[in-house]
Computed example of a mutant assay.
Amino acid sequence: MAEQREPRGRAATAVSSPPPVEGPEEAAGRACRCITGLTGHPAEGVSAISRSEDGWHVDVDVLEVPRIPDTTSLLATYEVELDRDGELLRYRRVRRYRRGAADD
Rank of each mutant, 00 (worst) to 15 (best):
V46D: 00
Q4I: 14
Y78R: 12
R67P: 07
D83E: 06
R5N: 15
I35A: 02
A31Q: 09
R98T: 06
R51V: 11
L82C: 02
R96Y: 10
R10W: 11
E79C: 10
G45V: 00
L89E: 05
E6H: 13
G100E: 01
A12E: 12
A27N: 11
S52Y: 01
A11C: 09
D70T: 10
P20G: 01
A101C: 01
C34W: 05
T13Y: 13
V62S: 09
P7W: 00
A102L: 12
R30S: 02
Q4H: 15
G45Y: 02
E6I: 09
Y91K: 11
E81Y: 12
D85I: 03
R84T: 08
V58S: 05
R5F: 15
V58E: 05
L75D: 03
P18H: 01
V62W: 07
S52P: 01
T39E: 07
P18L: 00
A11T: 11
H57V: 10
S16V: 02
E79L: 10
T77F: 00
H57M: 06
E25Q: 08
D59M: 08
R96M: 13
P7M: 00
A102S: 12
D103F: 11
L75N: 06
E81Q: 13
A48S: 06
E79M: 06
A43V: 02
V65T: 09
G23Q: 03
D54E: 15
R8F: 15
D85C: 10
P19Q: 12
S17D: 14
L38F: 06
A14E: 09
C32R: 14
A48R: 05
E3S: 13
